[in-house]
Amino acid sequence: MRAVVTVVGKDCVGILASVSAVCSECGVNITDVTQSILRDMFVMIMMVELADRSALLADFSGRLQKMGKDKGLRIQVMHEDIFNTMHRI
């Protein structure tokens, strides 16, 4: 399945590296990344592909959220269909 990882929080060194490291550990392939810094806020949107298994998603999402908590970032992993359904007819 394809999912969207969003990372929002105060900018600091190594955010992209830490998120990518978790992706790599979980065998999750990154297909696209955009990021921007608005004032001090770091916003990153990452498209990823992962095997269609609920347990994998839970593990991946759990690890990212834990890492996010340690660094004061808000990290969400969501199936891409939620965005496609809401914003496209």
Partner: peptide
């Protein structure tokens, strides 16, 4: 790629 503005709007709706 899905529009970044749409993604952030959805996040805002859910989180805030």
């Amino acid at each position: 790629m899905i529009n970044a503005k749409d993604i952030l709007e959805t996040l805002m709706m859910i989180q805030e």
